[in-house]
Every structure is written in C-alpha cells, then in structure tokens.
Write a protein that binds this DNA or RNA. Sequence first.
DNA 1: GGGTACATGTAATCAGTTACATGATTTA
DNA 2: TAAATCATGTAACTGATTACATGTACCC
Lengths: 183, 183
Amino acid sequence: MPPEVSSAGEPPARLTPTSYVVLGLVRMIEPASPYGLKKLLDISVGDFHPVPHTTFYVEPARLAKLGYLDETQEESGRRRKAYSLTDKGREALDDWVGDPEVEPTQLRSPAMLKVFLGADPAPLARSALAFHEGLLAQLEALLEHRGAEMDEGPRLALETGIQYHRLWCEQWKRLGAAGGERD
Amino acid sequence: MPPEVSSAGEPPARLTPTSYVVLGLVRMIEPASPYGLKKLLDISVGDFHPVPHTTFYVEPARLAKLGYLDETQEESGRRRKAYSLTDKGREALDDWVGDPEVEPTQLRSPAMLKVFLGADPAPLARSALAFHEGLLAQLEALLEHRGAEMDEGPRLALETGIQYHRLWCEQWKRLGAAGGERD
DNA sequence: GGGTACATGTAATCAGTTACATGATTTA
DNA sequence: TAAATCATGTAACTGATTACATGTACCC
C-alpha cells in the first residue's frame, strides 16, 4: 500500500524554507503586504535566502489556504491584501525554528567557477568587488543605525552577513591583484 | 514576428552554468565517465557550484547531441560511456570562461535563516561546525598534497574555498559561544 | 557466497524563476 | 498630463532535485 500519495490536482501542503521565510517575515511586520515582505527581505535575510518578489504574491496566499496565515483584503481602492499569522502558523514557525536539523549551507559563485576554469580573475574581481562592497556598505550602515534596537537573531545574522561580504572583498582583492593582470 | 521561439518538442539548446561545469570537468579528465566527473566535482568546484550525480548521466548526453561532446561507448561488459570535448565544445567553453559577465554570488544558509528567526545558535553551531571543519580539513589536505602540481585556476579556487570554510568555522564558534548557551 | 560499497541510470515532480502585464501614486 | 516610480499580480516554463531501480566489483 503506497503511503501518503497525494491525490489528484490538490496544491501540495508541504512547507519549504521559503514558506518559513514568509511566516517569519510576516511575524515581524504583521499585518504584512507582499511588497512590505519583499522590502523587509532585502534588508534582512535576503543574503541567506534570496526570494524573488513574485513569490510574495503567491506563497502567502497558499499559506493562507493551508491555515497558516490570515488574509484580509482592503475594500476600498487598491484592494491590497494583508497577512498575519494564525496560531497554527505561529506554532509551525516555532517548531521549524526550534528544530536544529538543517541542510548544509550552500554557495553558488559563477565568478569563482570561471576562475576555476581558467578565467583571468582581474575583470571578474572588478565587478565582484563592486557588488560586495556595495552590499557591505549597506549592511554596515544598517548595523550602525539600527543595531541597538534589533533583536538578537537579526543582529547576529546581520553581523555574519557583514563578515561574509568582507571575506569576499578581501578575497577578490587578492585574486584581482594576483594572476594575469594585464592592463 | 516573435523571434527565436523554440519549435515543438525539441530539446532546448541552451547552455547553463551546469553545462559549462560539465564541459570544464570533461576537459580536465577526458575521456571522462559520468562517475569520474562526479568524483572530480566533489574535490574541486563542488563548493562553488554543486551538481547532483544524476546530472552527470543526463547532461553530457544532451551536450553530445548538441555537438559539444563526443560520446563513445564500450562494446564489452558494462558498456560505459565516455565523453571528450569536440572543437565546438572547447570553443564554447573558452568563450564562456572568457566573458567577464557573471551573475552575482549567492548563498543559501538554512542555519543562519533559523538564527535570524530566533533560533538558539548553539545546537546549530555544533552541526555546522562539524560540517565546515570536515570540508576544511579535506581541502587543506588537498592543497598540501596536490597544490604544487595544480593549475592556477583550480588552486585559486581551492584557496578561496579554504578561506570560505574558515570564515564559517570562526563565525559559528562565535555564534555558538554567544547567545543562549544552556547546557 | 553473501554483504557492502561502487557505479549507472530513468522518470516524475516541483520550487523557483522568467516573462509578461497592468494599476496606482507621486512629481514636475 | 506625462513620465517615472512604486506596487501588484498571473502564467508558463524548466533546471535541478528526488525517488526509484539495478548492475558490477570487491572483500571477507
């Protein structure tokens, strides 16, 4: 007897890490709009779990159908939707966060892949440096201005993000300087 | 007139970063078997572009059909397949590697996501540390024993990988020590 | 000759992305 | 009132993963 085979065309009830990102962000700014969630992501865990904006229009609706979120809609004008956690949602989030089981951290770096395959690091270093320095500046500013009032989790994540981008900056400086620097 | 719409059920001719990983790895060990490619990946760019083993049985065959690889098959026993680069493949690889355009590096860390959401870092730190320390030891050994004979690209990538895992080790040590360490 | 690790593959699914499209608000 | 930006959404596609399955070689 095949266990737990999902029937016909039902939407899958499974929660992915992205689902928990949504639940977690909603908790921070409920009642939350999709756009608000996207903006919050960009200045928070975007570094550790990127999510495209379109997902915030789809996933919360799905989570609402599954009973993890409450959905309300404006009557007037834009008829925007706003989400907040249900008890079920809060519980699911706490359970997941409390479970120390995690998949390993993973990295995907097309630039380093090219270096590995023999590319001249110098031009890659230029754009990579710009990228990481830009983010670093943003994160450092955020820590300075908001650090004091942040909860511990977000602050630790922010500090780690800063260290992460610093590493890349150092690394790309070395890579750009080494190797075949023809100018 | 809609340009370049792909016709009917044809297999897509597009090359993804994963395709170039395959081409690049084949170049290093041609004639290459799928299993050999997987093993090579694990001790080389696996850190910067993970690929599941099944891909190495599917993607090379597709690349062969597109003319980027030559495919030969054993007549006897296991009838294993082996791949090597065609001129077209070599050229495509060089072109891609030579193009300094890259998508930004991205990170995905469920563990840091949980920290952000309020998880106690201590238990997460334990398993994360084990993970990164294990990889670090492997990479360091590899650099020590093979570093001298490696090409520059792979060596730079290896050194960067080492720095990357070192960062996580330091970071998780701090996170594990800070916060709510109840024992 | 039985167990374990190595090696090879297929097929279905799906999470996330991409492409597309449009509405609302502000600014000048 | 036009342009720019902010905000909201739908639908199709697809690369990569997952689940499954099996064969082959080696070791005791």
